[in-house]
Design a protein around this nucleic acid. Sequence first.
RNA 1: GCCUGGGUGGCGGAACUGGCAGACGCGCACGACUCAAAAUCGUGUGAGAGCAAUCUCAUGAGGGUUCGAUUCCCUCCCUAGGCACCA
Length: 773
Amino acid sequence: MNPYDPKTIEEKWLAKWEADRLFQGTAKTLSKSEKEKFYALFAFAYPSGSGLHVGHVESKTALDILVRFLRMNGKDAFFPVGWDAFGLPAENYAIKTGIHPSVTTKNAITTFRRQIKRLGISYDWDTETATCHPEYYKWTQWIFVQLFKAGLAYRDKGWVNWCPQDKTVLANEQVVNGECERCGSKVIQKELEQWKIRITSYQDELLSGLNQVDWPKATKTQQENWIGKSEGALVKFQNGDTSVNLECFTTRLDTIYGVTFVVISPEKFKEYGLIDQVEEKHKDSVNTYLDASFHKTEEQRRVGEKNKTGVDTHIKLVNPLTKEEIPLWIADYVLGGYGTGVVMGVPSLDDRDGSFAKKFELPIKEIETLSQKEVDNLLKTHSEVFSKATTYKLRDWLISRQRYWGAPIPMVFCEKCGWQAVPEEQLPVMLPELEDFTPTDDGKSPIEKAPDSWKYTTCPECGGKAKREVDTMDTFVDSSWYFLRYASRNEKDQIFDKKLTEKLLPVDLYLIGPEHIVLHLLYARFFTKFLRDQGYLSFDEPFMKMRHQGMILGPDGKKMSKSKGNVINPDEIVEKFGADALRVYEMFMGPLEGDKAWDTNSLVGIYRFLRRVHDLVLSSTQDKSTPKTVRKKLHLTIQKLSEDIPKLKFNTSIASMMECVNLWETENSMSHEDVKLFVQILAPFAPFLAEDLWHELGEKNSIHLSSWPVTNKHILIEDEVEIVVQVNGKLRTRFMIAKDASKAEIEKQALALFDIAAKKVIVIPGKLVNIVV
RNA sequence: GCCUGGGUGGCGGAACUGGCAGACGCGCACGACUCAAAAUCGUGUGAGAGCAAUCUCAUGAGGGUUCGAUUCCCUCCCUAGGCACCA
């Protein structure tokens, strides 16, 4: 008997599967198949230069196990793969070394592809896509053009987050604690005109659609909070001669009697041109304050949370209900972008208003809040000043990036006709070749340095000279629709093969890390709904079911990082213990969704388990038979796996296989046919070893094309069951009794074991008796 | 501060719908093999008491519901992640 040698076994089968094109080209067969489909999607990966991480192994393996199991159960699995290949790291590397991002990206993808194949992940490589390929970004651009035509992509001038280090604009969500998400520099504010996508036009559906999907509760809650729907009322405040007319948004109309001042955000004050209403003698102080707040960084605004600033405009407004005169202040604790940017100050009931009033010695009025009934009445009787209103925290999506390594925004600017979309037949707008990738110092994209032959073109409207947009798109745009393209990867003249899309989508299971859940999911859902409304899709939600994998931490329990020196390299593990051991170990570490620390000792335990299986199978002989206990255990294990795998409970699946092997080893006997059944249930977890043993057992076709074993329920039926006996809820003893014994019989037998007077006896047939004394 | 998870042996973790807490693995201890070590195999392993059968305690803390609670309810503590002046 050969000793277990994973390297030899795995490399042998890897080559064979590759040659046989096992599970490749599935889109074609799926289009004709009558079988039930299952679209398993793994989160788009960024092909980083450092190669595959053991964390990737976990989530890819988890999906692979499920997919292999489903295939064995007669389903058609669609299991595609692709790369989120545009992005900053490759570009920053290019700035440093001068090596073109396309070169480093291509190399990184080659490494990833080799590593993933080596793990035995059964992706359909025919679907492989990369966002940096013109065949892909042609359609990213095409979607942008559709958005533009539908009025959902627009230019907007406004304050944006600016990273002085990366020299680029950051979306709100890329600013973490006032610092750039990537480089950690302090973010400052800068005014630029850029492209935005009107994601807010779908805000209600983005909220209500969450009811249709099976997602973790926490994820749904985060989406909901991000959209931030809030229902309340608008209140009109005017000054004496009605030259100033402001609306406040409030969710607490019941506090209207407590209003002692009104506060407006600096942005809105400027926007409304209210400086004209300020008396000459106060103009200086107001302008000084406005100036200061426009130059505040995010960081400074944050510090202001505790120490509020503001300035009195000396404009007097009137409470529309009480007719009391109240002052209008400007303060940057009021956000310009939320609600109306104007807030009524109720210092007695709102902490923020309270601290503001205290600081500036504004009056504080103690009041009783109104009842819901009184509020409803106010809305009716004073409809000229009060009206119901709903606001959202969600903002439109700023997608312009002053960067090279991204999809060019397919727009041109003509002096005469303004912004025009590049005609669809001219797509893609190819990325120009550059040698210098640094952004210009005034914040323009490096593409500004492209030759004039690229930069200038003709206006599609008037035929005159037009300049191309030099900004590229946020990479979130690329990744918002990749899952829609996989099945149609080879379509040249249309974004989707409509029939195939109908057949394969939506995604049945999306496995994605918890870090990108808010934005990526929001954007992907928005794109889906938009393309549906354009007539390209017929479903509302792209991801019917979603689960998250946890993080694999270093042996020290901390996040793996090069600087901490706690990184485990999957290549080394595969070399030493084999891909099967790595796969099974990572699945055994604990529940998929939790964070888990790496422990090489435990991995060795798994290696031992696989070797025991290997040795047991190879030492089994045709003449052996399966003892009753072993046969029962085997079928219990088949049953357990059949239930656990669809629930992604792989740790308990593996534990039950180990129990089965333990018993099998003790009895040291199993029939040839039963050995095959065991090898089959191991196949999704350890595909290489199982394939090898399957052939050793005389089979000719791949085990991965075989049918999942059926639990023999007959074997599991017991004649007798064990009854647990408790006294006052504490375990005392147990006994066996016929399976169909009546309640009375069970009670009688239980009471016979004790010489006590029972007050009450609880009998759960087939399970237990609890005697209360 | 708010939202959402989580807290079970030395460690990772099991426990269906309220019904035997600690499956499985690691580690550890002892034993076998070995000149020896490694590897491998076997036995044991929550804490405490007892020669023993067995008993007591134990699922972050405290309380409640129940014949019975790791599981349900209330209060609190710790921890991870997210949001954070959102009116």
